[in-house]
Write a protein that binds this DNA or RNA. Structure first.
Lengths: 340, 340
DNA sequence: CATTTGCGGGCTTTCTACGGC
DNA sequence: AGCCGTAGAAAGCCCGCAAAT
């Protein structure tokens, strides 16, 4: 026996397809009694609407896209992505909307995927991660005229919607904390320099140098890999004038850096404080556990997903959604520098 | 200007819709010259087939489902899931097929989702993780008569397809290695007892006890959480007769266990060897780095995805796909026990 | 053989007809 | 005659394919 359709229900209930449709969608046009009868029949036949058929009619795909141009391995390596994916999924599931995930090798493929998925009406909107400085994706997506929610911001000069957390404020908190502990030589092992949030964090650091009269503050951009994190750490710890504190832009790099410190006999936190601008299980499982700026990434993504759904429902909206600022969680990897 | 349809192309090229369809799908029925002209117009108008329309016709959804009944956080915590998701995605993307992910709270919701998604024709098939002993999902999915690929196996008494890695063999290798190093007291911090692979690993251990004349081999089931891993480790290390080696069923638990050892002043690997039956960045970033059974989880998932696509193309198939056995990678956390 | 016509797939929605006041 | 609520008929969404030209 094949899957039942509204035509089957209509026949069984002795009404027309149209009446069935109205009844099932809770729209006016049928009497209460007819509605009840139709619903009973539909339930009895265990009917569910055919997704494709519904999409074809109302031109809603019932899915949103998340396209990442990172090495495919990244998803398994960076806890951040798992949190974002499950957070988005949770927000979308409330609505029965699906998440379509695509991992591509380069930004060109990413742009092509936006165009294709939009042209195919495969998705109703997109979630964007890691906004760049002068991000070429923004004008492209504005031209496509498709609902987009960017995770990160604030974004200058764009009509795209975004959900942002104040990581400038968070970085302030981190530097203030280190300065208060007495650190004057701080190194920032940053993320990709083209990322907007990387720039924002680096700016805060530059500014903090003057404010706190720090002796040295350097930001060193990386590709977020554990190996680069380790290399940079090894390099800065090999200098005559060692930093007394290092801030890492991801916990993966922070853990790698901690490993280098151990390997070089640099004690954490006595000789070196380590602070991670990113928190996950990773940061909590190391010894010493890492002081970190933590936030509810998953909850953030869930909220963003809800906003995207609103945006899809009403494309005239522009959302500027503030989410909670990352919070400093002191653990065992930070302390006053030696001699303080 | 709205999205172009084949009708628009037909009009512009001065032919009928049918001719356009033949041309675009590379079927006979149009002359070479007409075909070229049609393709040129389609390209110029940047046409892509409407997903829903295509699905409706050929009754392929162009997506497969992955439904997980685990706490939503798990996805961000366990690197395994990120690897599986990105691996599946890679295999499916080759075909333009999408991956639909759903994280639910309990097994009932999982079963309901299988039924709904099948009834809605939302997906063409499913990927199943973590097969259980007497798994209730199997008969349910067999009844739904939908293509399914189980990640894990071999599975007794089922017509479902699966892709399996020989983790019995891998566990043998691990125990043989520890025995060869001279360990006689081994504890196995296992995963969920209802998981088939947990049982299989526990069985190997029981059997190994006799074979190697070990003094003690215990398997202790857990929920895979870092906290349970830590609790169990603390407990067994507090006994009068400590084990000299612990095998963990996940690297998250292994890292947590390593932390407990450090906290208790138990030196790794001098006083205690740690072996993780699961490998990820996590196991490599700790100090000492963890000896682990490693496998290409992502590649495994990619192969499974390809098999599932074959299965969808030809539902009469039954796939029993062997993938490579996990391999022991000795790192710094294992050594002969004291006095050897 | 090249091309057109037209239907099917399942659902939504608009338009029209009907019966009752 | 005119208005209401209800229900049926049919068009439309877009593509693929079979049958007809």
């Amino acid at each position: 026996m094949a899957r039942p359709t509204i035509a089957d229900i209509a026949e069984r209930a002795g009404v027309s397809k149209g009446a069935v449709s109205f009844a099932l969608n809770g729209r006016p046009g049928v009497s209460e009694e007819t509605r009840r009868r139709i619903l009973a029949v539909a339930d009895e036949m265990n009917w569910r609407p055919h997704r494709a058929a519904r999409s074809l009619g109302n031109s809603r795909a019932g899915a949103v896209g998340l396209i990442l141009s990172r090495p495919a391995r990244t998803l398994g390596l960076e806890p951040f992505f798992g949190q974002v994916v499950s957070g988005l999924q949770a927000g979308l599931a409330e609505d029965g909307t699906a998440l379509q995930l695509l991992v591509v090798e380069d930004p060109e493929a990413e742009m092509a995927a936006y165009r294709n998925w939009t042209a195919e009406k495969r998705v109703d909107g997109f979630v964007l991660l890691d906004p760049l400085i002068d991000d070429p994706r923004f004008p492209a997506l504005e031209a496509l005229d498709v609902p987009v929610m960017v995770l990160g911001g604030p974004l200058p000069d764009t009509s795209l919607s975004y959900s942002w957390a104040d990581d400038s404020e968070a970085m302030h908190e981190a530097v203030d904390y280190l300065a208060a502990l007495g650190h004057r030589h701080v190194v920032h092992v940053a993320g990709m320099p083209q990322f907007l949030h990387t720039k924002r964090r680096m700016d805060v650091l530059t500014e903090a140098k003057a404010r706190h009269e720090l002796a040295e503050v350097v930001s060193i951009p990386t590709d977020y890999s554990d190996s680069e994190g380790a290399v940079i750490t090894r390099r800065v710890l090999s200098r005559r004038e060692r930093p007394t504190a290092i801030v890492y832009d991801s916990d993966v790099m922070a853990v790698a850096g901690l490993g280098v410190a151990l390997e070089m006999g640099v004690r954490v936190p006595q000789d070196l404080s380590i602070l991670s601008f990113d928190d996950s299980l990773l940061a909590r499982l190391t010894h010493p556990a890492l002081t970190a700026l933590t936030r509810d990434t998953q909850g953030w993504a869930t909220e963003a997903a809800r906003e995207l759904l609103r945006l899809i429902a009403d494309p005239s909206l522009t959302v500027r959604h503030p989410s909670s600022t990352p919070v400093l969680v002191p653990r065992e990897s930070t302390a006053p520098p030696a001699g303080h």
